[in-house]
Design a protein around this nucleic acid. Structure first.
Lengths: 393, 393
DNA sequence: CTGTTAGCGCCTTCAG
DNA sequence: CTGAAGGCGCTAACAG
C-alpha cells in the first residue's frame, strides 16, 4: 500500500521534467517561496565593508584577522570587533588562499568508501584535520582507476596543499602529479609502485603472522588464506607472503603444536568484483571443507583466514547459505579488520588501528606541507588480535 | 612478539607546540633553505604563463578555458592547446571562484559517520556531485552540536554554494546561516525545527507502518519499538508515531489476524550514548522476553522493532550475549536500515533508498543554487521490506 | 601603531 | 576575432 514514493525517486540517467509539480503536493506550508537568488542573499560583507564600518583601513582589519592583535591599539581593536560583529563578517578563505598561496585544503582520495576500513580511517583523518586547521576534501574513486585520476586532477585544480591517498592500486603514473616532484602526499594502507612518499598503515607482516600462529596454535592444520587479487596491492601481498612464510616456518619447527603432522596452507584468490570467479573460488573451498568434514567425526580442523573484512563477509555469507546457521562448526573464520558483525557472530579478528592510521597520515602530511625535508617514511602500526569463539576449539 | 609499532603511534591529546618556531629557526641557522615549496615544487603555471607561451593575451586563454572556442581562430586555438599541454597548465579553481563568485563547492554536514546510513547517503551525494560538476566538502559533526556549528561556520568561510545537512538534531539557531535567509540548504533524513528548507528522506510513516504490519501479520502480539531519544529527531518521531498508530488501528480492526487477542505495543527509548540508560532499557526488555517465554512452550511471540541500524546492532549484541547463538528463538528482530550483517544473521529489515536520498538531495540543492524559486519541498522515498528468517514463524 | 600600494590568478566589459 | 584594463577579497611590503 503505502510504499510509493511521495516524490518521484531519481532514476539515474533519466532527465525528469517533473520537478516543479511534485513539489506541490507536499505540505509543509510556507507561504512565501524561499528565495536563494543573488538579490535576496545580501552579499556577504567583505574586508572593505568592515574597514569602512570601523572607520579604518583594510590593513588593520587584516592584521586583526591574522592575530596580530598586539600591534593594534585597544581602541581600534574594539571598533574592529564591533564592526565585524555588526556585519557578521567572515573572511573569505578563497581569497586569502589566493593571496598567501595556501588554502588549508587537503585531498583525501579513497579507493572504496564501501569498505568499513576507509570510513574508520576517515574519522582519524577528520579529527586530525580539525586539530591542525586543515579541511579535507573527500573523494571516492569507487575502485576505478579512471575516477582516481580525475579526482586527483580536480584536487590539484583546487590547489590542495597535499593529498592522502588510499590508492585503487595501480602504477605510479596515475599519481604522477603527486609525491616526490608534485604536491606532498602520504599513502595509506598500500604503496604505489614507483612512487616515493610517506606511508602509514598496518604492520601487515606482523598481523598476518599473528593470525596464522593463532590458528596453528589452536590446532587448525588446514588453513586457507583468502584474499582479493593482490598483484597490485602491497598490503595484500605482504599479508599473503607473511602467511606463507609463517606456515613454512612452523613446518620447519616440526609440525603444529598438536604434533599430528604438518599443517597445510593454501592461498585462495577471490576477486570480489567478478561473480563468476567468486563462484569458482568458493566451490573450491567447499570441496576442501567437505573433505575435511568427511575425514572424521571430529570438529572441523579447517580454518579460513580472510585478508580483510569484505572478503570475510563474502565468506561468511556463503558459508551461512551453504551450511546454515551452524556454519561455524564447519570452518573457523579469522579476519583482518574488525567489522561490526564480528562480535555478533563471534568471528575472531585482527583489528587495525584505523583511527590512528588516519590521524598519523594527516600529521605526516602536515609536516610535509610545513616543509619538512626527509626521505620517505613508513609508519607501521600493530594490529590487535581479538579472539572470539570462532577459532577456539 | 612483533606487535610493536614500527613508528610511534599517535597519542591523541598531546599537543606539540613546536610547529611555528622550529620552522623559523631552521631557516635562519642554515644557509640552504630547507623549505620544500620554493624550488623543488616549480610553481604551477598560471594563465599568464600560458598566454606568454602561446604568444597571445590572457583573454584568449580565458576564452578557451570557458569553452568559447568557436570564437577563436583555429590557428590561435592550436597554439593555446599546445602551450597548455607543454606547461601542464590547470586553471586555479580558487581564483576563478573568487572572480565569478561561485566555486562549485558544496558542504555535506553529517551527524554521524559511524552510521552506515550516512555512508550510503554519502555515496549518492558523491555520485550526484560528480555528475553535476560539484565538489562536496564532507564534515563530520560526531553528534556534537558544537562541532556542527563550527563546521557550518567553516563552510561558509569557504563560501560553499550550498549545504546538505544531516543535522545532529537541534534547534534552528545552530543552522541560522543556512536555509531561508542564508545559503541554500537541503535537509537529509530529518527536519530542523524552525528551519525552512528542502528535505529528502525516507517515508518514515509508511516504513514504520509496513514493518509493524509485517510483524502483526506474522502473529507477533507483543511488539517493542526500540528507538533512540526522539524528541529532537523528526524521523524518529514519525517512526514511533506511525508504529503506535498502526498498533491501535489493528486493535480497532479486531485484534491480530491470529485472533488470539489484542496485540500489545510498547515503545522503549534507548539512549545509545549513555551506557547506564542502555543497561536499564535492556533489562526491561529482558523481563518482557523472559515473561513471554515462560508463558508456554510455544515459539516466541515477542518482536523487537529497531528504529535504525545502530539500535538493532545494540539489541542483537545484547541478545546474543544473554541468550547465546540461538537468541533469535527468543525474540524476533526487525530493523529499519539494512546493514551488512542483517543478511548474515537473517534479520528482517526495511531498506532505505540511501543512495537515492543522497542523489536527490544534491539535485535539489543544485536547483536552489541555480536560483529556482519554490516553497520548501519534501521528498519522501519509500523503504523496501526485506523479509528474512528472523520474523517468520 | 596605522594607512597606501601592489598584486595573487582569473574573468569580463570594452575597445580595437 | 583579439587584447588591454579593471577588479573579486585579501595580504604584504612599504611608507607615514
Amino acid at each position: 500500500m503505502s510504499s510509493t514514493a511521495k516524490c518521484s525517486p531519481h532514476e539515474p540517467g533519466d532527465k525528469q521534467n517533473d520537478k516543479p509539480d511534485n513539489a506541490a503536493n507536499h505540505k509543509r506550508n510556507h507561504e512565501e517561496p524561499m528565495s536563494t537568488t543573488p538579490q535576496s542573499m545580501p552579499r556577504r560583507a567583505t574586508i572593505t565593508d568592515v574597514a569602512r564600518e570601523a572607520g579604518t583601513g583594510k590593513t588593520s582589519i587584516s592584521r586583526y584577522l591574522n592575530g596580530e592583535i598586539s600591534v593594534l591599539s585597544p581602541e581600534l581593536r574594539a571598533r574592529i570587533e564591533a564592526a565585524i560583529a555588526r556585519l557578521d563578517y567572515q573572511p573569505n578563505q578563497m581569497a586569502r588562499g589566493l593571496k598567501r598561496g595556501r588554502n588549508r585544503l587537503i585531498g583525501m582520495l579513497l579507493a572504496d568508501l564501501t569498505n568499513p576500513y576507509s570510513i574508520e580511517v576517515l574519522q582519524g583523518v577528520e579529527a586530525a584535520c580539525h586539530a591542525l586547521g586543515l579541511m579535507p576534501l573527500i573523494c571516492h574513486a569507487a575502485n576505478e582507476v579512471e575516477m582516481e585520476r580525475r579526482y586527483l586532477q580536480l584536487l590539484t585544480t583546487y590547489r590542495v596543499e597535499g593529498v592522502i591517498v588510499n590508492a585503487t592500486g595501480v602504477r605510479e603514473e596515475t599519481l604522477r602529479p603527486v609525491g616526490g616532484g608534485g604536491i606532498p602526499a602520504v599513502l595509506v594502507d598500500r604503496l604505489v609502485d614507483g612512487l616515493v612518499a610517506d606511508m602509514v598503515g598496518l604492520d601487515n607482516r606482523a598481523a598476518a603472522e599473528l593470525g596464522t600462529r593463532h590458528l596453528l596454535d589452536n590446532g587448525f592444520d588446514d588453513i586457507w588464506f583468502v584474499v582479493q587479487p593482490f598483484e597490485q596491492v602491497s598490503s595484500r601481498q605482504l599479508r599473503e607472503a607473511a602467511f606463507r612464510e609463517t606456515m613454512s616456518a612452523r613446518h620447519a619447527e616440526g609440525g603444529n603444536s598438536g604434533g599430528e603432522g604438518a599443517a597445510r596452507g593454501h592461498t585462495l584468490v577471490l576477486n570480489l568484483a567478478d561473480a563468476g570467479e567468486v563462484e569458482r573460488g568458493l566451490a573450491e573451498l567447499d570441496r576442501a571443507i567437505d573433505a575435511a568434514a568427511g575425514a572424521a567425526g571430529k570438529p572441523a580442523r579447517i580454518a579460513l583466514f580472510a585478508a580483510n573484512a569484505p572478503v570475510a563477509l563474502r565468506l561468511a555469507l556463503h558459508l551461512k547459505a551453504r551450511y546454515g546457521a551452524d556454519w561455524q562448526a564447519r570452518a573457523a573464520l579469522l579476519s583482518i579488520d574488525d567489522p561490526d558483525w564480528a562480535e555478533l557472530t563471534g568471528v575472531t579478528t585482527i583489528r587495525q588501528p584505523t583511527y590512528e592510521i588516519g590521524y598519523r597520515a594527516v600529521e605526516f602530511l602536515h609536516e610535509r606541507i610545513e616543509g619538512i625535508q626527509t626521505t620517505a617514511r613508513d609508519c607501521l602500526l600493530p594490529g590487535e588480535l581479538i579472539v572470539r569463539a570462532s577459532t577456539l576449539r
